[in-house]
Design a binder for these strands. Structure first.
Lengths: 187, 187
DNA sequence: AAAACTATTTAACAAATGATAAAAACGATA
DNA sequence: TATCGTTTTTATCATTTGTTAAATAGTTTT
C-alpha cells in the first residue's frame, strides 16, 4: 500500500502537512526472516508495511508467543519505545520479503510539537490502534479458541496461506496441537 | 484525585491550555449502582473519576463479562463513541458512590483542532490508554488465570475489598467458581 | 528422486476450567 | 438476634486445553 493512502487512512491531511511527514520517511527493503525489532532495546523508528507481512512475539519461558500480525498498510511500532522511550518486550520478525516505510520517532515527535494537523494525525493514529487493541482484548476474553480462529480466517482468510499455524496458534492463545484439533473438528 | 493532577499526569500543560480544558468540565455525583453508559448508544461525554470505582461490562449470551475497572484518576471512555462517533458495546456501572469530572466529547474535539498543546494532550491520552490495553492483552495471552489473579492483587490490592469476586472472575476471563478454586489453592 | 529438514496432525493421558447444584458465609434489615 | 437475600465456596462430573511423543505431510537441498 502506498504511503499517501496509509497516511490519509489514519487522518486526512493537506498535502503540505502530508509532505512534512513524507520528508521524514524512507523506503527500505528487508528479506524474509529479518528481525526488525529486538526485545529489551529502545527502538528509534516506526514503520508502515508497503508490502509483506510481519509478526511480533515475546518469550514465555522458552517458547515464543506471537501477539500481533501486520500486513500491507499496517504500522509496526514498539509501543514502549514510541510512547515512553523505553525498552520494548517484543521481537518483530518479517515473515516475507518486505518493503517498509521507515519514520524516525524523534522526527515525528518534533512534527507533533510544531504542526497541529500532524499532532491530530498522531492522536488519531493512537486512537485507531487503541480500538484495534480493545477489540482484540475483548475477543480474547469473550470468545472461545474456536470462535477466535473462525473470526481470524473470516477477517483475514489469506493469513492461513501466509503464516504458519504454530504462529497463529500462539496468537489465538492456544498450543499448536490444540489448533490442529480445532481445525479437525470444524471440517 | 483532583482534575489538575489528572490532566497533568497525562501530559503537562500550561495553565492557559489547562484552563481551556477545565472550562469544559463539570463535576457531577452519582450513587452506587448508577449505569453511566448504556450499550448500543453513542455516548457524548467522557469522564474522569475523582472518587469511586466503576466497571465496564458487556453481555456474552446471558451473562455479563467485566472487561475494565476504573478507579480514582482513571478515565471512563466508550472508545467507539469517542474515536468513531459510533455506538459502544459496553455498559458502565458505578460500583460505589462516585464523584466524576465530565467532559463533552464535542467540546474536547473542538479544542483538539484549535490548540496544538491540547491536541498533543489528546494524543498522549490515547497513547497511554493504548499501553494499558496492550499490557492487559499480553497478560491475558501469556499468563495463566492464577498468574493474572496474583498480578491483579499485587497491582491493586484493595480491589478485593471494593469489587465483588464475580466481577473480578469475569475480568480475569474465568468463571466465579474457577476463581474460588484458585483462591483456595493459593492459601 | 532420495534424503534431510520442517510443519502439521494424531494419539494418549494429565491438568485446568466450565456447568450445575448445594452448602456455607456474609450483609442488610426488620 | 433472627430472617431474608446475596455472595462465595465446595463438590461432582463434563469438556476443553496442555503435554509429550510419534506419525504423516510438505519443502528444500543434494
Amino acid at each position: 500500500m502506498e504511503i499517501n493512502q496509509i497516511i490519509d487512512n489514519i487522518y486526512p491531511l493537506t498535502s503540505k502537512s502530508k509532505n512534512l511527514i513524507k520528508e521524514t520517511i524512507i523506503e527500505i527493503k528487508f528479506p524474509k526472516g529479518h528481525i526488525l525489532f529486538k526485545a529489551n532495546k529502545i527502538e528509534t523508528s516506526i514503520y508502515f508495511i508497503k508490502k509483506g507481512i510481519a509478526r511480533a512475539y515475546a518469550y514465555s519461558d522458552d517458547n515464543q508467543i506471537t501477539f500481533w500480525f501486520g500486513k500491507e498498510g499496517d504500522p509496526i511500532v514498539s509501543m514502549q519505545s514510541y510512547v515512553n522511550n523505553q525498552k520494548g518486550y517484543e521481537d518483530v520478525e518479517l515473515l516475507e520479503d518486505c518493503v517498509l516505510y521507515e519514520l524516525k520517532i524523534e522526527k515525528l515527535q518534533k512534527l507533533f510539537l510544531e504542526n497541529i494537523h500532524i499532532a491530530n494525525w498522531g492522536r488519531k493514529f493512537s486512537e485507531l490502534e487503541l480500538i484495534k487493541s480493545e477489540k482484540r482484548l475483548i475477543a480474547l476474553q469473550f470468545n472461545t479458541a474456536t470462535e477466535r480462529y473462525l473470526a481470524l480466517i473470516e477477517n483475514y482468510p489469506s493469513i492461513i496461506q501466509r503464516v504458519q499455524l504454530s504462529h497463529i496458534a500462539s496468537y489465538l492463545g492456544i498450543t499448536q496441537v490444540s489448533l490442529s484439533r480445532i481445525r479437525a473438528n470444524i471440517k
